[in-house]
Design a protein around this nucleic acid. Sequence first.
DNA 1: ATAAAGTCTCCCTTAACAGCAGAGTCAAGC
DNA 2: GCTTGACTCTGCTGTTAAGGGAGACTTTAT
Lengths: 270, 270
Amino acid sequence: MYRIGLFSEITKTTIKTLRYYDEIGLLKPTEIDTFTGYRYYSTDQIFRIYEIISYRQIGLSIKQIKEIVLGNKSIEDVLNEKKIELIDTKNETEKQLSQINYLLKERKEGFIMNYKPVVKELPECIVYSKEMNVKNLDGYFAVIPEIGEEVAKANPTLKCIIPDYNFTRYLDGEYKETDIHLEYCQAVDKIGKETESIKFKKIERAKAVCVMHQGAYTTLNKAYAYLVKWCEENNYKLSDSPRESYIDGIWNKDTEEEWLTEIQFPIESK
Amino acid sequence: MYRIGLFSEITKTTIKTLRYYDEIGLLKPTEIDTFTGYRYYSTDQIFRIYEIISYRQIGLSIKQIKEIVLGNKSIEDVLNEKKIELIDTKNETEKQLSQINYLLKERKEGFIMNYKPVVKELPECIVYSKEMNVKNLDGYFAVIPEIGEEVAKANPTLKCIIPDYNFTRYLDGEYKETDIHLEYCQAVDKIGKETESIKFKKIERAKAVCVMHQGAYTTLNKAYAYLVKWCEENNYKLSDSPRESYIDGIWNKDTEEEWLTEIQFPIESK
DNA sequence: ATAAAGTCTCCCTTAACAGCAGAGTCAAGC
DNA sequence: GCTTGACTCTGCTGTTAAGGGAGACTTTAT
């Protein structure tokens, strides 16, 4: 019979760990002195602790090990479960590595952008929308309030969702400065009555990589360029038309520098 | 100014997280009502929280993000640091996956071994040793006590280390049943006086994959076979002669079934 | 005015131990 | 037999990055 210190040296396991395994019932010492509380381990226990360490080394959690040791689950089941976890972890790690390498590369090349791309889930929403072909964007923004008025006239009880979500989708599939095919969308609480040019539709949830752009719209193309490159380098594919969502603009901020726009690129992993 | 709930929906961040970032000083709301304690966020904060989320997505810890945001460390430094961490994680994950796949394969093929391989660090130690060529192992174990006596005679103050560590190294580099070239080693507390056949030496620390073997020595070859295969399948290379360390044996256990031996294969990653 | 929804602080929980304090125990040397 | 030093015990706190819930208070809508 070994006391805990010796047993810990033999098995190369810390005393803390042994006491912890005792506490959670994973490995009880063969004997505990009733008066002193000293733990005594026998050589059989070396076997048991080795089994546990072996499982810990392949990444199993204590919970999973308990399930195996207590016979509640078959080893295969637990291993397969863990395998899936590990594959997820690996994919996650590789994505992070790719993004970090991209950031480092950017900075090495002196191409330092202050865009902070964020991958997030865009929830499903109902929008009213109007598709248009415009010569250029100058006149476009003046049209938007008119669309709102037209919809309100046909649908007096319709409400925008809170927080507000309105955006432009660029439908050309490539960057254009003139003759732009686009669609204005405004998220609302329900499907309403359509007019000749204004249609209602449900937009499905989507994963998207997004950046915030601060400043005048003339520099938005930088944000687009950034996202296009980011997707390329990190192995994502655009799965839908990009959205340009307006947060702060001429309607609530005086100077162009304060305008805030979010560019959203719906994506799927390649 | 947005209240926390709205801000949380805009930024797709939970209220809990926002409060937590406030608490730890990573993102304080622009304004907090002194009477009600209500937090109010401005649109600028969207930028700030996006930066944080972006860094969280590439796996940076809150601590690392703080260092970047507070300007204590350059982004490059933190990214490079994280890159190393990620590469470690990736290697670790891949090793675990390899081991799990091996275990699953084993079981699929019905080749179920109860060996639980454990990779551990064998500490540096001083040993006295005797190299021998023996016909077979039958007579070998009887010789060991004699070696001990011979050393004790030449070195009266020499002591074995606690816990005891004595082992046989097989020097042939292949499995043999007869004419075996081997070396007996016993770890002691210091270098002593050598005799004609008994030498002292320091054995360097080494990483080794180990299994415990219970039972008679005649079945030890199964443990060897298991470790050889394990190394092959998990991409490890034997970096030194295997060791066979004796824990329980004829000297303290009556029946062969109780004997306990640890096989240690020093390894390096291929 | 009342009800519903939103927000506040405070405390507990997670995983797998590590570190420390203060008290008790064991073995060796004198 | 006594002292000293090494060992061990329990119990507490800390770690990460929040999540969950209780009970009190505030705001908004009807």
